[in-house]
Design a protein around this nucleic acid. Structure first.
Lengths: 330, 330
DNA sequence: TTGAAAGCGGTACCAG
DNA sequence: CTGGTACCGCTTTCAA
């Protein structure tokens, strides 16, 4: 592999001049510029990335942390992030936490080592106070999660409102006994969503029961499991469920139908994220659409703004719009 | 951020010694080692990744190319790859081709620039001859795709056999008029799968019609589109479909039911990949299970073997087992 | 407009 | 066992 020295030698100029050509600096005579470019082409030279990075102190690599890369929502986030990053000549490195604090902290070390230039947190496993110290090492940004005080850009949507909207929709459809499925109370975003759920119930003087609230709802299998538990409830069962995930909703519906319930007759289900799966179940799933790809793209452009303009990181909450998409399950 | 020089100064030793401690070299006295480690700890020092990488000529970064990160199959592949890489202290950078040759070639430049140490191709958009020159720059490995002559490790499964098995299953169920959906004839793997389909038909003296073969089948929407075309077929319609993707199968089934077909009564459908979606449609989808996560993990360990043992890259085809998973759609 | 040279922060060879 | 030092390949003053 040729180096800049060899190109310089062949062109009979200094490495500085070659470097200037490479970086489009002014003050290089047109004649030399052309000659250098010709030799570069001829030798098929490309600059050594690590050497350049060491000098300029940047890796052109962004990390995105997600619980699991194969979760449809996060896969969409990765898609958006990856797309936007590439347009700006940044690469994206995927980091999975598997919902585990330690893995997330491990990721922070990448920032400390300058292995990555910045981090997009697609979820948050640790307490923010354990993450904050790493801000000294480079920009961190929160995307799809919320925190009350974190002094970083936060890209999210109004979880309270979307939760409220989903439940109000169920109420308007005539349902009164409404349950809620979510993945984990560790997530501030999910807690706010839950508040929206509770507020909608309260505003309409509707009952709410502890046993209608299910956590640990991540996947299709969890939906099936939860539906079995509902089926076995000794007392009153919910007539509708607000599920924090389309996967869970799909599992709920499938198992409900298996158990002989009519959906939405006996049990209505509303999902979240408006994933493609919503369109292929029977009945199809009413859901809340989240502009996930946009979320990812914006996360990158915001992060790069901090990086290139050296903007100090500051708190700045950006809310994206969500939309109720009504289908057959409600 | 402290550097190795500062640590050396504080410890009153040379940078060589600190480096030795850092890299667990022998020939450092226990006393000095402990002192150095203490200071490193105290200063919260971590080595600069780019500097180290420049010296050792490695970025500890692997690239994986997929058509789209949010395709469930490829999301699973990314998951497996990412998991395994991290265990070996490598990072994984996701690269999306969007089924476009140019993007794939762009990826090759990362290898040339030493931005990544190796590449896992989850698909292949270009002709192999256009990729092969980059082998000089670093290891490339094919995963989930096949090529007749490429001199690189290929991790895949027997597409002929799985195609044959799927179709034989339909035949055993009594179907005779069997169609085929696949995404693109650019994929050698898909062509082999098609050969399996054709061979099964031929071995059972069954007819095959050009108009029962559909390409451009990637997504749920494509499934719906194809079902509409089948519905409009002027002559004989297929009684069963072998779809190269569960997403497409789900779309086919959904639309078939919408159009008043009974599945599998009037039309049987078999998918591919055995994704979670298979379990939530009505009817549930018979599919071919692919050990995608394993495929990803193996790809990484194989690639790292080339990297660490400096093994010359050579052709080596590894076949993974697939399995027919029978559900309600057949 | 150009070149010389000093790093960026490590690693590893060679001498002692 | 330890230290001195020459790089790795590029960018960026500074001086000419």
């Amino acid at each position: 592999m040729p180096t800049i020295q060899e190109i310089a030698k062949l062109c009979k100029v200094s490495t500085s001049t070659v470097s200037r050509v490479l970086n489009n600096h002014p003050y290089v005579s047109e004649k030399i510029r052309r000659e250098v470019l010709r030799v570069i082409e001829e030798m098929n030279y490309t600059p050594h990335f690590l050497a350049r990075g060491l000098r300029t102190n940047s890796s052109k690599l962004l990390a995105v942390s997600v619980p699991k890369a194969d979760h449809p929502f996060f896969a969409g986030l990765i898609k958006g992030i990856s797309l936007q990053a590439l347009e700006s000549n940044y690469k994206v490195c995927v980091f999975q936490t598997f919902y585990c604090k330690e893995n997330e902290l491990e990721l922070m070390k990448l920032l400390q080592n300058r292995e990555v230039d910045g981090i997009i947190l697609g979820a948050l496993e640790n307490l923010w106070d354990d993450i904050a110290p790493y801000l000294k090492r480079g920009p961190i940004l929160m995307c799809n999660e919320f925190h009350e005080t974190a002094q970083v850009p936060i890209l999210c949507y109004n979880e309270f409102e979307s939760g409220y909207t989903a439940v109000r929709h169920l109420i308007e459809r005539g349902y009164r006994d409404i349950g809620f499925c979510f993945d984990t109370a560790n997530s501030e975003a999910q807690n706010i969503r839950k508040k929206g759920y509770l507020a909608a119930l309260a505003d309409h003087n509707l009952p709410y029961r502890e046993e209608w609230i299910f956590d640990g709802a991540f996947s299709i299998l969890d939906g099936i499991r939860i539906m079995n538990r509902i089926h076995d409830l000794p007392e009153k069962k919910p007539a509708a469920l607000f599920s924090g995930s389309d996967q869970v909703a799909a599992g709920l519906i499938k198992q409900a139908v298996n158990l002989g319930y009519s959906v939405p007759g006996d049990l209505a289900v509303i999902g979240y994220d408006n994933q493609p799966i919503c369109r292929v179940t029977t009945p199809t799933i009413t859901s809340i659409d989240i502009p996930v790809e946009q979320l990812g793209r914006k996360a990158v452009s915001r992060l790069l703004a901090c990086l290139t303009e050296e903007l100090p990181l500051k708190r700045e909450v950006t809310l994206f719009p969500t939309e109720l998409v009504v289908r057959e399950s409600t």
